[in-house]
Amino acid sequence: MVRVKDPAVRSLLLDRAAHMLATRQPVTLRSLVAGTSVSTMAVYTYFGGMDGLWKAMRQEGFTRLAARLAAVAPSADPVRDLAALGAAYLSNALASPDLYRVMFDASVELEDIAAADQTLHCLVRAVDRARAAGRFRDDIDPLELATQSWTIGHGLASLVGTGPLPHQALAHGVPLLTALFTSAGDDPDQCRRSVELGWHP
Rank of each mutant, 00 (worst) to 15 (best):
L120G: 08
P74G: 06
E109Y: 03
E109N: 15
T147H: 08
A87R: 03
A106L: 00
N92H: 15
D77Y: 14
T147L: 05
L90Q: 06
A76L: 15
L120P: 00
D117N: 09
A93L: 02
D112K: 14
F136W: 04
H154M: 03
D105Y: 00
D141Y: 12
Y100N: 02
A84V: 04
V124N: 00
F104C: 00
G134K: 07
G153N: 10
V124C: 07
A88H: 12
G153R: 00
R137V: 05
E144S: 09
A115C: 15
A116C: 05
F136H: 08
A95G: 08
T119M: 03
I140L: 11
T147Q: 08
A115I: 11
A132K: 11
T147F: 07
D141M: 07
M103V: 01
A132Y: 04
A88S: 10
L145Q: 08
A115N: 14
R129D: 13
A106C: 00
P78S: 11
L120A: 09
D117I: 09
A126W: 01
A114G: 06
L85I: 06
H121R: 14
A130F: 06
A76G: 13
E111N: 12
V79C: 04
A87Q: 03
A146C: 06
A88R: 05
L90Y: 01
T147S: 09
W150R: 08
A88V: 04
S96G: 06
A115K: 15
D77V: 13
D128A: 14
E109A: 09
A116T: 02
L99V: 03
E144W: 10
D138Y: 05
F104Q: 03
D128Y: 09
D105R: 13
A87V: 08
Q148N: 10
G153A: 12
P97V: 08
S96T: 15
